[in-house]
Write a protein that binds this DNA or RNA. Structure first.
Length: 264
DNA sequence: AGTACCACCTGACGGC
DNA sequence: TGCCGTCAGGTGGTAC
C-alpha cells in the first residue's frame, strides 16, 4: 500500500543502503515490471554506474545515475517495496528487478502483486508529466492546497486521492486525513468553507508528517489515529463512535459514524 | 466534470 | 482439511 508516507520511507531506506555503490549487474526476473525500457538497455545503462541522489514526488521515487545520464523511476503499485540484501542474502521470491552491486550486495524491487514498475528516464519531470502528476501533497502550502482543491465538484476523499490535483495520497491515508479533520469522506468539496479547507490542509500535513515520522507503520502512530483500527465495527479512537465502512470515489472508505457525521 | 466499475495480480481471510 | 469467493491496494480505461 505504498502511498506518499511509505514511499518517503523507502527513499530514506534507499539513501541509507544503496547510494554510491557501483552496479555490477542487473537481473530482471519479471520483464513486465520494466515499464518503458528493455532489460538489455537498462543493464547497459546501469553497469558501472552508481546511484548518487534520490527524489520523491507523490508516490514516485527516483534515483539518479551518478553520470547524470538519467534517473531510475520506481512506482510501487499496491504492494511494492525495496529490500537491500547483504552479500549472499537471498532476495524475496517476488523480486521483480534486482540491482547487484560490487561486492555482492543488492537492491531488490520486490512487488508481489505486480502493479508496480521500474523505468529509466532522462528527468523525473518526464514521467511526472506523462502520468499527469500534480504537485506533491507535502510540498503544498496553504495557498497551493486551496488552489488544488478549488473548483472540484466531487467529494473530499476523491480530491485527496486525485493524483493530478495533488500527488501522493491514496485510499488509506485519505481516510486518515478525513478522520483527523472530522470530515465525512463523501462531503462535497463545495460544501467546505474556507476555515474547513484550512483545517483539511492542516490535517493533511499533520497526518503525512506524523506518518513519515512513524516509518509509515500504523501501529506506531500516536493514540487517536484511525489506521490501526480501520475495520468495520471498531471503536473510534477519538470519540465513542463506531468505525463504519462505506464507499466513496469507487473505493471502500472507513470513517467514524459519530465525529465524521455528514454535516451537509 | 465526476463517478462507478472493471481489469490487472496475489495473499489474506471468512465461510462452508 | 481444503476449496471458494471476496476484498484490499494504485492506475488506467470505459461507460454512464
Amino acid at each position: 500500500m505504498p502511498e506518499l508516507p511509505e514511499v518517503a520511507v523507502f527513499r530514506q531506506y534507499l539513501e541509507r543502503t544503496a547510494l554510491n555503490r557501483p552496479i555490477e549487474d542487473l537481473a530482471v526476473p519479471d520483464p513486465r515490471t520494466l515499464a518503458g525500457v528493455a532489460p538489455g538497455i537498462l543493464k547497459v545503462r546501469l553497469e558501472g554506474r552508481s546511484l548518487d541522489a534520490s527524489r520523491r514526488h507523490g508516490k514516485f521515487l527516483f534515483a539518479r545515475l551518478d553520470d547524470a545520464t538519467g534517473w531510475l523511476a520506481f512506482h510501487f503499485g499496491g504492494s511494492g517495496r525495496l529490500a537491500f540484501l547483504d552479500a549472499g542474502a537471498p532476495g524475496p521470491e517476488t523480486t521483480r528487478v534486482l540491482f547487484c552491486f560490487d561486492g555482492g550486495s543488492a537492491l531488490a524491487f520486490d512487488c508481489p502483486y505486480r502493479f508496480g514498475y521500474v523505468d529509466l528516464v532522462d528527468r523525473p519531470e518526464e514521467i511526472l508529466e506523462e502520468k499527469d502528476q500534480g504537485p506533491d501533497a507535502l510540498e503544498l502550502g496553504l495557498e497551493g492546497f486551496l488552489a488544488a482543491v478549488d473548483g472540484w465538484g466531487g467529494s473530499v476523499k476523491s480530491i485527496l486521492m486525485n493524483q493530478s490535483r495533488l500527488a501522493g495520497v491514496g485510499s488509506r491515508w485519505a481516510d486518515e486525513i478525513c478522520f483527523q479533520a472530522g470530515v465525512h469522506p463523501k462531503t462535497p468539496v463545495a460544501e467546505l468553507d474556507r476555515p474547513a479547507r484550512e483545517a483539511l490542509h492542516a490535517a493533511l500535513r499533520q497526518v503525512l508528517t506524523t506518518a513519515i515520522d512513524c516509518g509509515a507503520v500504523p501501529e506506531r502512530l500516536p493514540e487517536g489515529y484511525l489506521l490501526p483500527r480501520r475495520r468495520e465495527g471498531a471503536s473510534c479512537p477519538r470519540c465513542d463512535g463506531t468505525i463504519v465502512k462505506g464507499r466513496a470515489s469507487g473505493r471502500s472508505a472507513f470513517y467514524c459514524s459519530r465525529h465524521q457525521e455528514p454535516g451537509w
